[in-house]
Amino acid sequence: MTLFLEQCLNGLQLGLLLFLLAAGLTLVFGIMDLVNLAHGSLYMVGAYLAAWFAKRFDSFFIGLAAALPVALLLGIVLEVLVIRRLYGRDHLVHVLATFGLILFFNEAVRLVWGAAGLTLALPEFLGTWVQVIPGVPYPVYRVAIIVVGLLVAAFLYFLVQHTRVGMLIRAGAADREMVGALGVNIRLLYTLVFGVGACLAALAGVMAAPILTVQIGMGETILILAFVVIVIGGIGSVRGAFVAAIIVGVLDTLGRAFLPGALKQTFGAAAASTAAPAISAMFIYLLMAAFLIVRPEGLFPAAGGRK
């Protein structure tokens, strides 16, 4: 039972990490109707920046604090140079252009930081253990990820539901032409939203860096998972992304933890150990496929509901 609770916590932690990534993706997707495959690259760049700054200044927090504004700036530059030219065009163009950006970013990172990959060391107090569930020591850093995820969720909820910018964002998602006609600077709004999305992706990268290795291509696998999340949650819905991220995170973790044992009883140990990771990985995609077929608008259809 404690093992089960511990795995649930792990799942929650993975889910909130996914949420950080998916939130930016779903905002950009919902508001600008942009398929951004390069979102994973921003995640990777965030992790690299943090690892590099942290090493240089010998502090995890300087790494974190320096990586986020740089990522925000990078997002804004990227939006002005490339992304802006993609709005209102065919999704195929989005896929191609942002695929090209992935190639560019992967190689740029290799050029700057080398092919070997980096590590991001934790400050001492984050490297300790705490008893969240009585009797089970749990890493403090994983708790920190959960807390950051929840804080970002609360911040985004406040931003989107209770501020003027959030109102414009919602209005822009519902009817961009009308918002533009009412005199709102849509261009600037889009640039800002993309920048915030980039910043969130980078934050996800920084948070993931100490538990995963910082390496080239790290953004690609998790990007696909983030897409799964936003499709299940409903494209454009931050709330949907939150719920779906936790569902995906928990299911994926529990599948990996308990499927081998469950399969062992029916198929024998050898077959179970090879099949279980494949099945639990496949299960997530099956879930997404099921959603797309039965309920393509997702759990929480975004207001406006184009397409």
Binding site: V93, L96, A97, G100, L101, F104, F105
Partner: peptide, 12 residues
């Protein structure tokens, strides 16, 4: 690093 921007350009 050359191919990537070329692909972007091609898409645009």
């Amino acid at each position: 690093i050359i191919l990537g921007p070329l692909v972007v350009l091609m898409a645009l």
